[in-house]
């Protein structure tokens, strides 16, 4: 059986992630867990995250799950969401927090203060709402999702990947930034697939069946 573990280290809306996975993979065992044993026995892993990076990394460290997640990241299909995407990189400017270092690069804040959008309205931070994702690189997880599809974003920080090969999707908000990244068995998005209606559910469905 396909055992999918949503890593629960005490931060973020893990339930909505699990519910979306259950909706697209009724045959799989979807478990919300903060147990090392579950992460070790999982077939695939979802790493969510919400809130401030220092708190997220702090909780991951304190829960003792960091090593288990790093171990799983070596070979298991893994999906990072929002702060769970940002955590994959080296360091975040949010509280100068060291992160997991699974992909080279850093996390920086939108600097859009005083800038205006094409329609004359201010750029707001956080970026909150539906924005388009350009599929800048082919990837198995983009199957059956139209290029330029809308996904739901809520964030003030974004990743700057050091290697452009890791960027598989981009979004334009004041500047073009990496909104989906991937490397070997890892895929991660700044947006929330679990809140992105049909396109988001399709992405999770593709992840559930992904054989990297």
């Amino acid at each position: 059986m396909n055992k999918i573990v949503v890593v629960d280290y005490g931060m973020g809306n893990v339930r909505s992630v699990a519910q979306a996975l259950r909706a697209v993979a009724p045959e799989a065992q979807v478990l919300i867990s903060g147990e090392i044993a579950d992460i070790r026995s999982a077939d695939r892993l979802v790493l969510p995250g919400q809130g401030a990076m220092p708190d997220c990394m702090g909780c991951l460290n304190a829960s003792g799950l960091k090593e288990a997640v790093l171990e799983a990241a070596r070979n298991k299909p893994m999906f990072g969401v929002c702060v769970g995407e940002q955590m994959l990189f080296d360091v975040s400017a949010e509280g100068d927090t060291p992160c997991l270092g699974l992909m080279p690069g850093k996390v920086v804040r939108f600097d859009l203060s005083g800038r205006f959008q094409e329609d004359g309205s201010r750029f707001k931070v956080p970026q909150m709402g539906w924005n388009r994702v350009s599929q800048s690189r082919e990837h198995a997880l983009w199957a059956d999702i139209p290029d330029q599809a809308y996904f739901y974003f809520v964030h003030s920080y974004y990743v700057q990947a050091a290697q452009s090969a890791h960027v598989v999707g981009t979004t334009d908000y004041g500047q073009v930034f990496a909104s989906a990244v991937a490397r070997d068995n890892i895929f991660a998005t700044q947006f929330h697939p679990e809140k992105s209606a049909g396109a988001g559910l399709q992405l999770y469905k593709n992840f559930v069946h992904w054989k990297p």
Binding site: Q117, E118, D119, Q127, G129, W130, N131, R132, Y150, F153, T171, D172, Y173
Partner: peptide, 8 residues
């Protein structure tokens, strides 16, 4: 700019 305006 492609952030959509929302209807709620």
């Amino acid at each position: 700019m492609t952030l959509a305006k929302r209807i709620i």
